[in-house]
Design a protein around this nucleic acid. Structure first.
Length: 706
RNA sequence: GGAUGGAUAGCUCAGUGGUAGAGCGCUGCAUUCACAUUGCAGAUGCCGGGGGUUCAAAUCCCUCUCCAUCCACCA
């Protein structure tokens, strides 16, 4: 045996051996019981970070454990097309070559986007096969590939036929930079210092004024009313009268609404239903008109001839100048404004034509069945249940090009405004319809220009990856999935959607065990991000300390739902400890193998003691793995192997070497088997050197306590 | 405003009714012995504050303080 362990050589050798032996492959035709694990698909554009490394390490440990227990394991990998993120990256690249969407046109843009996708994929995909993950790479799925496209179409079509889809003018959060509606959960808030303007409106026919407070004077020409809170001490007497908009000189009604805050400003609010969510609701309930004064590029529309063409902030300045005589006072005002999570642009609420899914029936079914899922930690059942209870309809359209294009075709001649309804000239179809329009008997089909929210497809991931809507043998055997893991970050975006869609389309929960790992953060508790430059590259850790040691270091952060703080130094310290552990294993093997063949059939109390301890360890490790408590399983193994077997038993065995040899071999071989799910490489290397049966530790039988 | 976590050794974290734990760091000793990528020994803690339940509380309950995350709202 070499004096020292070389992790690089070993890892490469055994990974290749395992893959070539077909050990990673699931076999839907086998009679073994299935155990299925669905890998959360990483974003196409993203480099894999420490969080992925932990996710992979967790899934792989469970997969290897179940494989050794005799299950037919499917560990299924995939890749996400990452809608907005990919599109933004690609557009940036095009801009460097002085190209743009407008210059290329949709068809050419998509052609190049796919080429770019291939390039990106080639450069990053090999990096995904890391941490020793025993995934069935032959089944890797991409969210835009044909199989998934078919499933997404079926999903859309079913919703349409079940009358759960509608398209409508609705107030949405619009990102002018991304040029797309975004959802609440895709926004974040940034604190901004702005001004609060107190503007006087004259009451028609009276020499009295009503003062409102607003941060957005530039939208004043889209005002359609003034609302006061009920029983306003000063203003209630103006109810039913009209006020004069000082900017446009038009008359608008004064109404009462309990949603107006007493304590904010003057207790009176200008109602701009086209550009504010609350105003939209109040406007709708009072049958007020809907006016747009800001367009989708963030500029003032021709509704306002004085400000037309100006950007929002320029318009605000000019509006304030024009309104100077009507402004009672200006206060400094610090508040949080919604910004786009991706590009940090201020989000503009405005009216847009979007597609929606009616969620009420899906939510109902999810709520009736969600308890069947075993959540780790348990409190996620409540968190998800509460969210689903308060669910709004799901806005599924995005004004992007990179994604699943909405499979709806309109007759350009008979339905030029692209209206939607069973009686409209439109067809739900993946391809351009072969038939003619029923009104004009001609073919003038144009497809809806928007694409579907990426989560509309990833929400179907548990089914679409298995071939749904076809009743494949995979779907029958592996659905529902036995194990799914995720960062808590996407519990609503992804996990809740999978639960609702799985129950809706497959009439069963998508996974039996849902494990939320914690978020790894830096020592100040901040997220890892490119812009902060605080990320830790898992590959550097692997090459310095070995994949096995890196995995073990990550398991110590793998308690369900617990965030962890770490740094390169902290990771190094932990990984170093486990690198030392691999060295220890190596040296134990050297010691045992030096006297191979020496064997006397005799036992003493020491042998009995270590066998008892081994049995206890088998029970602990098995139980903790069954309960997904990986950190406790690895703790128990580390303690047993190092401090009981090596420090005590081996030391004592030196006086009675031949007698102890069979026990030494047996205990060590069994320990390696218990350790294999966590440290796959060194355990294979050493197991192969010890007397053993079978071709690989990977497919040997999981130890049982005696 | 609502919800959910967390506060344990210098640092990062386990532990969830029965004599306070690990790793790293620190101190001392050991070295022809499988292993210095080591072994042995050791120091370090009012387990956030206060109250309660119990024979017994880091652990269960109440309360306070601080921290974090998520959700809602921000005219």
């Amino acid at each position: 045996m070499d004096k020292q362990y070389n992790h690089k050589v070993t890892e490469e050798k055994w990974y290749k051996f395992w893959e070539e032996s077909g050990y990673f492959k699931a076999d839907p035709t086998s009679s073994k019981k299935p155990y299925s694990l669905l890998v959360p698909p990483p974003n196409l554009t993203g480099d894999l970070h420490l969080g992925h490394a932990m996710e992979h390490s967790i899934m792989d440990a469970i997969a290897r454990f179940k494989r050794m227990q005799g299950f037919d394991v499917l560990l299924l990998p995939g890749v996400d097309h990452a809608g907005i993120q990919f599109e933004a990256t690609f557009d940036k690249k095009l801009a460097k070559d002085n190209l743009s969407k407008r210059k290329l046109g949709r068809e050419e843009w998509l052609k190049r986007a796919w080429q770019f996708k291939e390039e990106v994929y080639k450069s990053v995909s090999s990096g995904w096969r890391f941490m020793g993950m025993s995934a069935d790479w032959s089944r890797e799925v991409f969210t835009l590939e044909e199989k998934i496209q078919k499933a997404v179409f079926e999903e859309f079509k079913s919703f349409w036929e079940q009358d759960l889809l509608y398209k409508g003018a609705y107030i949405v959060q619009w990102c002018p930079k991304c040029g797309s509606a975004i959802e609440d959960i895709e926004m974040e808030y940034a604190e901004r210092k702005e001004k609060l303007y107190f503007i006087k409106y004259k009451i028609v026919g009276m020499d009295k004024y009503i003062t409102i407070a607003t941060a957005r004077p530039e939208t004043i020409s889209a005002d359609v009313a003034i609302a006061i809170y009920p029983n306003h001490p000063q203003y209630a007497k103006f109810l039913g009268k009209k006020a004069i908009n000082p900017f446009t000189n038009t008359e608008i009604p004064i109404i009462e609404d309990k949603r107006v805050e007493k304590s904010f400003g003057t207790g009176a609010l200008k109602i701009t239903p086209g550009h504010d969510l609350l105003d939209y609701e109040i406007g709708k309930d009072n049958n007020l008109p809907l006016l747009h004064v800001v367009d989708k590029t963030g500029r003032i529309t021709d509704l306002d001839p004085k400000l037309v063409g100006l950007k929002v902030l320029e318009a605000r300045e000019k509006a304030v100048q024009i309104l100077a005589d009507h402004i009672e006072k200006i206060e400094d005002y610090i508040h949080s404004v919604p910004v786009c999570e991706r590009c940090k642009t201020t989000v503009e609420p405005l009216i847009s034509e979007e597609w929606f899914v009616k969620m009420a029936p899906l939510a109902k079914k999810a709520l009736a069945n969600i308890k069947k899922i075993n959540f780790a930690p348990k409190n996620y059942l409540k968190i998800l249940t509460n969210w689903i209870k308060n669910l709004h309809d799901w806005s599924i359209s995005r004004s992007l090009w990179w994604g699943h294009r909405i499979p709806v075709w309109y007759c350009q001649k008979c339905n030029p405004n692209h209206l939607v309804g069973k009686d409209k000239d439109m067809i739900v179809s993946l391809e351009e319809p072969g038939k003619t329009c029923q009104t004009c008997s001609q073919k003038h089909w144009v497809q809806d220009g928007q694409v579907l929210d990426a989560w509309f497809s990833s929400g179907m991931w548990p089914m679409s990856t298995l071939g749904w809507p076809n009743e494949t043998k995979e779907l029958k055997k592996y659905y529902p999935w036995d194990f799914e893991t995720s960062a808590p970050e996407i519990k609503f975006l992804w996990i809740a959607r999978m639960i609702m869609l799985g129950l809706w389309f497959q009439d069963d929960i998508p996974f039996k065990n849902m494990f939320f790992h914690g978020m790894l953060r830096d020592l100040d508790g901040r997220k890892f991000s490119k812009s902060l430059g605080n990320g830790i590259n898992p590959n550097e850790l692997r090459s310095q300390w070995g994949t096995d040691a890196t995995r073990m270091a990550l398991y110590s952060y793998a308690a369900a739902g617990r965030d962890g703080r770490t740094s390169r130094q902290t990771m190094d310290e932990r990984a170093k400890n486990f690198r030392n552990f691999t060295t220890k294993l190596w040296n134990i093997a050297k010691f045992i193998l030096a006297s191979q063949g020496l064997a006397l059939r005799a036992q003493n109390a020491d042998d009995q003691w270590i066998m008892d301890e081994l049995n206890k360890t088998i029970k602990t490790v098995t139980k903790n793995l069954e309960e997904f408590k990986l950190h406790l399983a690895t703790d128990a193994l580390y303690e047993f192997i190092w401090h009981k077997f090596a420090d005590i038993y081996i030391e004592k065995s030196k006086d009675r070497r031949a007698e102890a040899q069979p026990t030494l071999e047996y205990v060590f071989k069994t320990s390696l088997e218990l350790l294999h799910p966590f440290m796959p490489f060194i355990t294979e290397e050493l197991w192969q050197k010890l007397p053993h049966e079978g071709k690989s530790i990977m497919v040997t039988k999981w130890p049982e306590a005696k």
